[in-house]
Simulated scan of single mutants.
Amino acid sequence: MDLDAVRAFVAAADAGQFQGAAADLAITQQAVSKRVAGLEKELAVRLFTRASRGVVLTIDGQAFLPHARDLLQAEERAAASVRPGSRALRVDVIGRRLAPADLLRDFHRAHPETPLDVVTLFDADAAVAALKAGTIDAAFRAVTRPVRQLPDGIEAERVHDEPIQLLTGPRHALAGARAVTPDQLAGHRIWMPGIVSGTEWAAYYEALADTFGLTIEATGPDFGTEPLLDTIAESPGLATLVGLQTRLVWPADDDLRRIVLHDPTPVYPHSLIWRADNPHPALTALRGHLGAARAADDGAGTWTPAWAR
């Protein structure tokens, strides 16, 4: 099987569009389309259908995606087995638009000579499995259990608390507020279709909802960020929650509002996870950089789940 075609398929599935996949892979959009078409021909199925904002996985595409990821991970393990100690520092982030990617960009600016590979795995369990296998060097994830309960040889340290904000459209009842408390969100519908049961981010938002009596809905298909923003912009009753450092872009006429949450401020607890016996020299530099940044954090007036304290 053509692994370049498999890589193009996975990139398009993650980005939700061929253009975004082309940017991630540093190839042309035409090349992505050609590779995916070749893979579809080889498999004799359609993997994507066209949508107004990009592409959507078919049922066959959804079934093939986890196996495609396994193929690419097997390729990475095979390559790493013949170049120990020579590859770039490989770090998993929860999303390329989210706070951990910002933390890595800051590290790269401070250490431009350090080569980095940035990957996105599904959840914390997948990240820990990849750390144990040696296919990644570190991961930014929320850790929902005590560090002593992590697998032998796996260590974690909380490195960044990211404030959570409310995002509404212009007709929402809270759209004119400069700041609201979490308690004031009770009774308002918060829609987050990207939440997947059993993941660390689901555990965070479940704890947030339980603590403050919120209604957080994960119903309906997750078509990606842009359709979510379109729905929020048009709705007088739906809002969503986003991280302070989540990079979002929307049309000016959507007039979306990012509203500060305070008294207390919910923060998402990002931790760095790594394997204790990993000798990669850049891992030590990354941990030192994040430790210095963490020292400047002020945790006063914040809330995070009990499992993160």
Rank of each mutant, 00 (worst) to 15 (best):
D4E: 11
A5I: 10
R7T: 09
R7Q: 08
R7S: 11
F9A: 14
A11V: 07
G16N: 06
F18P: 03
Q19T: 13
A22K: 08
A22Y: 05
L25I: 12
A26C: 04
T28G: 13
T28V: 05
Q29K: 14
V32S: 10
S33M: 15
R35D: 09
V36Q: 12
V36W: 09
V36C: 09
V36N: 10
A37C: 04
A37P: 02
K41M: 06
F48S: 09
F48T: 14
R53T: 09
R53W: 11
V56P: 00
V56H: 05
L57P: 02
I59A: 15
D60H: 12
F64A: 08
A68Q: 00
A68R: 02
R69G: 01
L71F: 12
A74C: 13
A78H: 10
A79K: 08
A80Q: 14
R83S: 15
P84S: 14
R87N: 08
V91M: 04
I94L: 13
P100S: 15
L104H: 12
L104N: 07
D106E: 08
F107H: 04
H108A: 07
H111W: 04
H111K: 05
H111M: 06
P112I: 12
E113D: 13
T114M: 06
L116Q: 03
L116K: 00
L116S: 03
V118T: 07
L121A: 04
A124H: 05
A124D: 10
A126E: 11
A130V: 00
L131I: 04
K132Q: 11
A133G: 01
D137I: 07
A138Y: 05
R141T: 09
R141E: 13
T144D: 12
D152N: 07
I154V: 08
A156T: 03
E157V: 12
E157H: 14
R158E: 12
V159I: 14
H160T: 06
E162S: 11
Q165L: 13
Q165F: 11
Q165M: 11
L166C: 01
L166W: 00
L166I: 02
L166H: 01
T168G: 02
P170L: 08
A175C: 01
G176F: 00
A179S: 08
A186K: 15
G187D: 09
H188S: 12
G194P: 01
I195Y: 13
V196P: 02
S197T: 14
E200L: 02
Y205R: 03
A207R: 10
G213T: 12
L214M: 02
T215V: 10
P221Q: 10
G224V: 14
T225R: 05
T225H: 06
P227R: 12
I232A: 05
E234C: 11
E234R: 15
S235Q: 00
P236Y: 07
L238R: 07
A239E: 02
T240Y: 01
T240P: 02
G243H: 08
Q245M: 15
T246V: 11
W250E: 12
D253N: 10
R258D: 00
H262Q: 10
P264V: 04
Y268I: 00
Y268W: 01
P269F: 11
H270V: 10
H270I: 15
S271W: 07
I273M: 14
R275W: 02
N278E: 08
P279N: 13
P279L: 10
P281F: 03
T284K: 04
G288A: 00
H289Q: 09
L290W: 06
D297E: 09
A300I: 05
W303Q: 04
T304G: 03
T304W: 15
A306N: 03
W307G: 01
